[in-house]
């Protein structure tokens, strides 16, 4: 996961093994109220740890007047989120969008 401006890029493995690193990067945005774009096109593995963390991130951004925009989300990650009933909480698009688009699905 890298920080590129206000963009969060998730790597291939976004599972619990990497959650601490991801947490650090999420925290960089905490309290800023920025509009963060998240690119999860490459994610092959995601789980509860990651998703709940992203929910926390989204909440934090919105509390401070910002947004979390999903530029792209891989089928795998979308699948996991859908299976766990977390699409709404994450503000994910209704369907997986594996390609990065210029007009991100707004939430």
């Amino acid at each position: 996961m890298t920080v590129n401006g206000t963009r969060l890029e998730l790597g291939v493995n976004a599972g619990i093994e990497h959650c601490r690193t991801m947490l650090e990067e999420c925290r960089d945005h905490a309290g800023t109220g920025a509009d963060v774009e998240i690119n999860a096109a490459d994610v092959a593995r995601a789980d509860t740890a990651t998703l709940q963390m992203l929910i926390a991130l989204r909440r934090d951004l919105r509390t401070n007047g910002g947004t979390l925009k999903w530029l792209a989300v891989s089928c795998e990650m979308h699948d996991v989120a859908e299976r766990m009933g977390l699409i709404e909480a994450l503000g994910m698009p209704a369907v997986a969008t594996p390609a990065v688009t210029n007009s991100p699905a707004e939430n």
């Binding site: 959650c19 309290g31 740890a49 990651t50 709940q52 929910i55 909440r59 934090d60 299976r83």
Partner: peptide
């Protein structure tokens, strides 16, 4: 599936594990 996310704490105190 209906998830309850109300217990997720703030980002600065969350323990992802």
């Amino acid at each position: 599936v209906k998830a309850d996310t109300s217990c997720i704490p703030a980002l600065d105190v969350i323990d992802p594990e």
